[in-house]
């Protein structure tokens, strides 16, 4: 049984301009110790989908199911959910400087986390654990640095400290929401290594949110691609990279230097993501899709199994066989090239 199984999650926010439908029927699952990558452009609902299941998408109305370790997080009492947060599901975020409290020492912040869930741990033991954790994530001179304030740490060290805090109670699941986006390129890889190492050591499952398919290629077991608040394709990593089906995934991959062949520059998918208040009809990707045909504008494609696989799903009207998809694509493009 999956550690976390999210089914048909809907999240919307009421705003003055209308209801923002940030998640529309999102489903995904993560097994123990596995890594799920969630990719998609900015605003596609990656953060909302993951934060709403632990009760952090405040002000949104949330429906659906999120079965974690046999219990539905969405119907759980808020006090119960509070006990799950931090202890069993930990989170780290994009900007490690603004995510740590500027007024408190790193030591204090980690100990607070430990003692909130294990009130019997005394101050000294908690501090010793904080130091061990900082050592574990590779902070040099941890005994001394533990007394620093976040602003005295470098960007990479702050994110390491966030990871140390997140791992303090040995959670079954770590949700890492763009943990490297705000960091220097050289530091990004180090931080990812730390996450990977701790994951292997503790058997933690990880949901890794990113816009960077390169990161996903490195450490994800399975991948979910989101577009405009919905999952448009999901598959295991190799399948997604080598036999992707959805034109949006194809576009994301083409924007990767490694897949673009000779071109080192990123090629963004042309056009803008749609407004989540007034969504397009039919397939939400059709205004930007190079293959869009009549049916795409009229009917929204279901997230269905493709290529005869038992786990690879795509929400696209293109034929669900490799040959069918290829010939239809070629036909629709009519000699044009994409990119």
């Amino acid at each position: 049984m999956a550690l976390l199984e999210v089914k048909d999650l809907h999240v919307s926010f009421n705003t003055d301009d209308g209801a923002v439908r940030a998640a529309r029927g999102v489903s995904f699952s993560v097994d123990r110790g596995q890594t799920l990558g969630i990719v998609g452009e900015s605003g596609s609902g990656k953060s909302v989908s993951t934060q709403s299941i632990v009760g952090l998408a405040r002000g949104g109305s949330v429906t659906g199911e999120a079965i974690f370790d046999g219990r539905d997080l969405l119907t759980m009492h808020r006090d119960e959910l509070q006990k799950v947060r931090g202890a069993q599901i930990a989170m780290i975020f994009q900007d490690p400087l603004s995510s740590l409290h500027p007024f408190y020492r790193v030591d204090w912040q980690i100990c607070e986390m430990i003692r909130a869930h294990e009130p019997r741990t005394d101050a000294k033991a908690a501090r010793a654990r904080a130091i061990d954790l900082l050592k574990l994530v590779g902070i040099p001179q941890a005994e001394r640095r533990v007394d620093d304030f976040p602003h005295q740490f470098s960007g990479g060290m702050r994110q390491r400290a966030m990871i140390a805090m997140a791992m303090a109670l040995n959670p079954a699941l770590l949700i890492a929401d763009e943990p490297t986006t705000a960091l220097d390129v050289t530091v990004q890889a180090q931080v990812l290594r730390v996450i990977e190492r701790l994951q292997n050591e503790f058997g933690t499952a990880v949901i890794l949110i990113t816009h960077d398919l390169g990161v996903v290629a490195e450490i994800a077991d399975d991948v979910v691609v989101m577009y405009a608040g919905a999952v448009v394709e999901t598959a295991d990593r190799d399948e997604l990279f080598y036999r992707n089906h959805h034109p949006y995934t194809e576009g994301l991959l083409r924007s990767l230097p490694a897949y673009g062949g000779e071109r080192a520059r990123l090629i963004p998918i042309t056009g803008q993501p749609p407004s989540l208040i007034k969504l397009p009809t039919g397939c939400k990707f059709h205004p930007r899709c190079p293959y869009a045909f009549d049916r795409c504008r009229a009917e929204e494609p279901p997230l269905a199994l493709v290529y005869g696989s038992s786990s690879h799903r795509s929400s696209c009207w293109l034929p669900h066989t490799v040959e069918g998809r290829e010939s239809t694509r070629a036909q629709l493009l009519g000699g044009r090239t994409v990119g």
């Binding site: 952090l56 947060r85 931090g86 975020f93 995510s99 740590l100 607070e112 909130a116």
Partner: peptide, 17 residues
């Protein structure tokens, strides 16, 4: 609305705290 408040909630602290 700050990120560190989200972190505090993600840590599972009581809302009062």
């Amino acid at each position: 609305g700050e990120d560190y408040i989200r972190t505090a909630r993600a840590k599972g602290l009581p809302e009062r705290r």
